[in-house]
């Protein structure tokens, strides 16, 4: 079958990109290898590990389970857009550093994207709620405890900053 191409235009971390893509190009591959935003990681390509989690219009989704063509006209956020322009870490990133919430760091971008969205929706979560929110992201290194602690601390820091 002839490859079938689509012109797409999308915004990633506020920057507009226009590209032609083959229908079957996964959004994860598109971000990583076409836009060279390689911070979004790929661990399974079947939706389970969560490493590829990004935000589409603010909601965390698996970029390995979307086609690049489907991102046409959408607003995406990836880990590269979390820290501010001056390089200051997002409170969730900072808390992960402070609490040793990452080891190999491969799962980390997906966790950051999942949890920044979660904490926006639930700024004062219980530990159990944090664990539930995290359960769609596998980490093989940390045993999660320090990630959970980081999220509780980040939530608190963000609440403090907001008030």
């Amino acid at each position: 079958m002839q490859p079938d191409h689509h012109d797409i235009e999308l915004k990633v971390n506020g920057t507009t990109h226009r590209r032609g893509v083959e229908s079957r190009m996964l959004l994860s591959d598109f971000l990583r290898h076409e836009l060279l935003l390689a911070g979004t990681h790929v661990g399974c390509e079947h939706g389970v590990c969560g490493a590829c989690t990004i935000l589409v219009n603010g909601a965390p989704v698996r970029s390995c389970l979307m086609l690049a063509a489907q991102a046409n006209g959408q607003q995406l956020s990836t880990v590269e857009g979390l820290a501010n322009d001056t390089g200051e870490l997002h409170p969730v990133q900072q808390a992960m550093h402070d609490h040793h919430g990452l080891q190999c760091g491969y799962c980390t971008p997906g966790i950051l994207m999942t949890m920044t969205a979660f904490l926006k929706e639930n700024p004062a979560p219980s530990e159990e709620e944090v664990r539930e929110a995290l359960s769609g992201n596998l980490c093989r290194c940390t045993g999660y405890q320090n990630i959970v602690d980081a999220m509780m601390a980040a939530a608190q820091a963000m609440r403090a900053a907001a008030s």
Binding site: M1, P3, D4, E22, S23, L26, E45, A69
Partner: peptide, 11 residues
Amino acid sequence: MKPAPFNYIAA
């Protein structure tokens, strides 16, 4: 683990 080719049409 990449999909086989197909035509994509956004209805």
